[in-house]
């Protein structure tokens, strides 16, 4: 409760949370209230926004607002899934290495560093490029998660290594707990708030990465995502036709989500970290 009060007092948190809430509402509310169809043509190509059709149409004459809402949902899905995969992988590897120390840690750290120097975006592009059909949203998210966990592994390892020498871990050991028990009961609880922040950052970077891949035309097959919309707009001369409604809204949305998540993260750091709290 006290934590929540501290959080609510930090302007960054309030702004970030409100923005995030707004995007979530935008993603999930309209389909309940309006009839949105992303496959039916509703007019000519690139019809500008009107009172009834807020964002006009795209190059095929589909309703741009419907596309945007559904693209937002896909992007959020990819982001969260990638975030979860990256956080879980990074946490497992980071905590295990950090707690065990010794040669196990050395090997895991070496692996992490190896993955870190391989440019993950290029790997992703190659991976996506090599899969033509069947590039589903979930698969892309898994790809992203599996190539970006290195960052969280490094961050978590450092934390776990500092917890390892704490007295309560020593006490747990002489109480007869094995490695699994110690990690789950005596290390992870202390890392929860930190992991939550890692997860937020990983989600933001998942959303951004997906947009980049999709914009290059390597995104999910037959699904709309924000990056996909951008790709379509660029490929079909929305820029030269002055059809700003085709590329501007997805761009703004991507920026807003990423911004909201980053602000949330920094504001929480100020609250969770008592040193910075003041």
């Amino acid at each position: 409760m006290k934590l929540l009060r501290h959080l609510l007092r930090s302007p960054g948190f309030v702004v970030g949370a409100l923005l995030l809430l707004a995007t979530l509402l935008l993603a999930f509310l309209p389909p309940l209230l309006l009839e949105l169809d992303t496959s039916r043509r509703v007019g000519l190509a690139y019809v500008p926004p009107t009172a009834g059709r807020w964002l006009g149409t795209d190059h095929l004459g589909l309703d741009m607002f419907a596309l945007l809402v559904s693209g937002l949902r896909s992007s959020l899905y990819v982001g969260f899934l990638a975030g979860i995969v990256a956080t879980v992988l990074g946490t497992l590897i980071g905590v295990y290495g950090g707690y065990k120390g010794g040669w196990i840690d050395d090997v895991l750290t070496a692996c992490t560093n190896l993955f870190l120097v391989i440019p993950s975006l290029i790997v992703l592009i190659l991976l996506s490029g090599s899969l033509q059909e069947g590039r589903s949203l979930t698969l892309i998210a898994l790809f992203i998660g599996c190539t970006t966990w290195t960052w969280s592994a490094r961050a978590v390892r450092a934390q776990a290594a500092s917890l390892r020498s704490r007295d309560h871990v020593a006490l747990a050991r002489i109480n007869g707990y094995g490695t699994l028990g110690i990690v789950c009961l005596h290390i992870l609880p202390y890392l929860l708030s930190y992991l939550f922040m890692v997860f937020i950052l990983q989600t933001a970077s998942g959303i951004l990465t997906e947009s980049v891949i999709s914009m290059l035309g390597l995104g999910p097959y037959d699904t709309v995502s924000l990056g996909n919309l951008l790709n379509q707009a660029i490929r079909n001369e929305a820029l030269s036709d002055g059809a700003w409604w085709a590329f501007f809204p997805p761009m703004v949305l991507i920026t807003v989500i990423a911004f909201a998540l980053y602000v949330l993260n920094t504001s929480m750091e100020g609250v969770f970290n008592p040193r910075l709290r003041k």
Partner: peptide, 23 residues
């Protein structure tokens, strides 16, 4: 090691640090 720790036990310097805050 559990057999050893049944024989040899410890108390630590900082009692706050020696207990887990979450239980």
């Amino acid at each position: 090691p559990r057999a050893y720790w049944r024989h040899v036990q410890a108390v630590f310097q900082d009692p706050y640090a020696a207990f887990n805050q979450f239980f």
